[in-house]
Nucleic acid binder design. Structure first.
Lengths: 339, 339
DNA sequence: CTGAAAGCGCTTACAG
DNA sequence: CTGAAAGCGCTTACAG
């Protein structure tokens, strides 16, 4: 099985020469077109044998150049080290490979320049389509992709003005339900920790919170955290919880995975008792939530389905069988001890 | 900036025609060879202008076919959803992009068939080299790669018979030091939770444990967990801790990230007090370790450096500037409350 | 049924 | 200094 010397790659031409036919026939057999093209039965057998014997492996690059399709999709997230996205990446990878597609992942760090660079790199490499988590305020490259009719689907968030496909959580419902639950449990002064951003998913989550609070005649306590100043902003925001201020909030809702984790560190450092001093609801699910001394109640996203569907929708677009899909997936509130 | 109609890609030829020169000259300018090839100054300016004006983007696929290099590396891990590997992936991505390389990630699930399929897929796609976390007992494809002189570097573990490059933790030292620390702390009956596997990194971690225990005249309590039966095997292994058995272990060392997490779930379920009932040392670091009620002392791997160096070594091999590197990185014991 | 040939978009010896 | 042309490894109309 093991060649001792460096084996030079065999090409279609090598096979053709060995069997004594043209490369066309070998190509037909290779692509299962031997019936359509009526290749002689005997030749088919011979070609197949040669293919196997010489251990032929098609050159995907050459095929891509000829076909204009690479069977590759680009997956641009904000950070692949974020468990939410690495889990989704795994689903995307698995699903894509079922269709014969390969995935290239890139992290934008929620940064426009990096996003643009990534898109360009992947465009050079002729990916057939994109699954994108659009970064805050970076619309131009997405608009360009849309206008150039590059197949694309946005996940986690979307750009409202753009008609392109997306698949997201029902964000309004997610936070509305979570806050509603807190209210039912009797909490009266509910705060929310959210990112300061114009991204639609965040706006929707905030809107859900505000609506629930408003409907119940409660006061609104929204803390805006800047993406690049996670720790310091959270520190500042939560200081008011230290008992000093008057209408101290008794429950806190985190708008994302990273906010939840950072919030938990801060709350633990402040020695607040959960849920006595403050009740909590997190976002996205995380092993850390399980081991917090008061396991966190949280909003769970259907990550698997999201990744899987994103691939399906994208490939439909690449195939040209369908153009646009807009999908919202329902959240699930996982009840535990933190409220 | 935004074209309303789908733009057809411009090629080198388009540029050449516009300027009225051959494609060769355009190619030279594009690749910064205008000096060597002595292209006329005026033409250089004109070509540059045309390149910009027509918004030329080189076709990477065509270049790859011609050059036999794709500037792509394959990164095969066991599971990209595992935080240890997703963190490493992020470093690999960042470092590779500095060299102009793109990364394709695949998950083998510690499975031979999948590993082989992944390697073949990536080989078809002409990746220039591999960074591989070799799966248990899957040597043949790695041997083939080595014999075919495909650039490759193994990370996290390596295959001892193979002379190929690798970059790993000093595994023996990592567990020796950890266990030694437990012993110094006065624990007398130290157990270890390890995977049942022939992989060298696991063997080395076990050897470190055994050596430390033996040197101190203590008894050995090694629990072998099967990869596919994580929960049930751990459940079985830890039952003996329930006070019923006589020489109950008073400290436990986890050999990996996944074992640590699974172990923590089990220990919490059994309501064992840490470190009173049992002291713990985990592996790899994880947010969950921080939020365990008794924050876990753990062996920390230099993940960033590992990912970064792996890329560097691989690219040295691809360039042909260096052939083989064997690197072992020192572990760090992060001290906290669990022992 | 089968072969000769063009062409995907580049790079690069080779002439001149 | 510049151009014409071959060739990377495929696929696919087009002849016959």
């Amino acid at each position: 099985m093991v060649n001792k010397k460096k084996s030079k790659r065999v090409s279609l031409k090598d096979i053709a020469e060995k069997v004594g036919v043209s490369t066309a026939l070998v190509s037909y057999v290779l692509n299962g077109q031997e019936k359509e093209k009526r290749v002689g039965e005997k030749l088919v057998t011979e070609i197949r044998a040669a293919l196997k014997e010489m251990n032929y492996v098609p050159n995907h690059i050459a095929r891509s150049l000829r076909n204009g399709k690479t069977q590759t999709i680009g997956f641009i997230v904000t950070d692949i080290a974020n468990p939410f996205f690495s889990t989704m990446a795994r689903c995307v990878e698995d699903e894509a490979s079922k269709y014969g597609y390969t995935v290239i992942i890139g992290s934008s760090d929620e940064n426009c320049e990096k996003s643009k660079r990534l898109v360009n790199t992947l465009l050079n490499r002729q990916v057939d389509g994109f699954i994108i988590v659009p970064a805050d305020g970076c619309y131009d490259y997405a608009v360009t992709l849309a206008n150039d009719e590059v197949p694309m689907v946005m996940v986690d968030r979307y750009i409202p003005d753009l008609t392109s496909s997306y698949i997201v959580l029902e964000n309004f419902k997610a936070s509305f339900d979570a806050v509603q639950y807190l209210i039912k449990k009797g909490y009266k002064n509910i705060g929310m920790l959210a990112y300061k951003t114009s991204l639609i998913h965040m706006k929707e989550r905030i809107r859900g919170y505000e609506e629930a609070v408003r409907l119940n005649g409660l006061e609104k306590n929204l803390y805006n955290i800047r993406y690049g100043f996670l720790k310091s902003d959270i520190h500042k925001a939560l200081q008011s919880l230290d008992g000093s201020s008057k209408n101290k909030i008794d429950a806190l809702f985190f708008a994302t995975n990273t906010l939840s984790i950072a919030g938990l560190y801060q709350i633990r450092q402040m020695n607040l008792k959960v849920p006595q001093d403050i009740a909590l609801i997190g976002f996205d699910g995380n092993e850390a939530f399980d081991f917090f001394y008061s396991p966190l109640t949280y909003v769970k996203q259907p990550v698997y389905e999201m990744g899987k569907e994103a691939v399906r929708i994208l490939i439909e677009q690449i195939d040209g069988s369908k153009k646009i899909s807009h999908i919202s997936l329902p959240p699930q509130l996982v009840l535990r001890d933190s409220c």
